[in-house]
């Protein structure tokens, strides 16, 4: 990943492009993330029901691919989805993927 792509992944998005955490159709938790850093932090904070809801709808990979414009991260999340994790295990796995990915990018600067 080159520097340009890395800084794109690390940028802060406007509010309307944030990721909004829901627990089911139409039920918004009040938590949102406008950057990869904030997204990673929120994964450890939000209710695991919200993570299960979004992961298995494909919302996380859609947001990382289309809004954050990071295809590589989207593929990593897709791989996790295919492993059918749930509950706390899902939260830990997702947090590990995101935090490692974030650390890897940030170390290049």
């Amino acid at each position: 990943m080159n520097e340009k792509m890395s800084s794109r992944t690390l940028r802060t998005l406007p509010r309307e492009k944030a990721f909004y955490f829901f627990t089911s159709i139409g039920n918004y938790t009040g938590e949102s993330a406008t950057s990869l850093k904030e997204f990673t932090d929120k994964i450890s904070e939000v209710n695991v029901k919200s993570l299960e809801f979004h992961l298995y709808r494909g919302d996380f990979e859609k947001w990382t691919a289309e809004t954050l414009e990071d295809q590589k991260l989207a593929r990593e999340i897709e791989n996790l989805r295919n492993q059918n994790y749930s509950g706390t295990a899902l939260k830990e796995q997702l947090y590990n993927i995101l935090s490692k990915y974030y650390e890897k990018i940030i170390s290049k600067f």
Binding site: E16, A18, Y20, F22, N27, Y28, T29, G30
Partner: peptide, 11 residues
């Protein structure tokens, strides 16, 4: 959800 001032939503 993105509207400023929205804290949470139940539907």
């Amino acid at each position: 959800a993105p509207l400023p001032g929205v804290l949470r939503i139940r539907t």
